[in-house]
Amino acid sequence: MIELKQLCAGYGDHIVLRDISLRFAPGRLIVLLGPNGSGKSTLLKTITGLNEKRGGEILFDGVSADTLSPRQRAQRVAYMAQRRNTPNIVARRIVLHGRFPYLSYPRRYLPEDLRMADQALALAGASDVAAASMEELSEGQRQKVYLAMALAQNTPTILMDEPTNFLDVRHQLNLMKLACGLKDQGKCLVMVLHDIRLAMKYADEIIVLENGSVRGDSSPGEIYQSGVIDRVFGIKLSRFETGSGPQYYYE
């Protein structure tokens, strides 16, 4: 469980996030929505420790993040960055680096780490590319490998910054279904999405950010009723019922 209390963060003199108080509970799929520059990525980076907070508190299971070393924090939260380098390394080796936070110097991976890496590859649907070099893979396949790396990290919470980027529609749906499967196993998934329809369909909780502040934090149904998405994005979000539940579209 991650708790944010009056969290403030920014870059240089520019404050991006103001007074953010949120809870990321186990077994939840939480989606952050908001226009460009609203502070979604900054929020994920601040929780991960990539960006220093300016005020407030971040708690991991009641323990202040300030008291945790980078390694201890990496054992509690995994982060899939929006942009990454793509070295010419075999995919399985990349996934294995997800076990990095559990090793101490001189870091040498053990058979147990390899087993967990293989499990993560299978779970992310990337076993077929395990032996391929990252340079040979398409962006969609690379995304799966990085997801497997986050899974190998075996943390209770996984933060994903725009994980559906570069994925075609089928792979986007597969990713969301995989996220639902992970939350059913008790993990908390927090993802930044730009696709409002995907978010409304799959999320348990939607957090709407605007100008660094939370404008809404509720279930998709309540978020829809409140009209906060219409106001923040300047669109008209509509809902219609189908046999497989409510679907959303906007204009």
């Binding site: 991960t48 980078p70 380098n85 990290q153």
Partner: peptide, 13 residues
């Protein structure tokens, strides 16, 4: 080599 963000998120200083 995975990039600063990924490296730090894995607990690397």
């Amino acid at each position: 080599m995975l990039g600063r963000d990924t490296a730090q998120s894995l607990g690397l200083r």
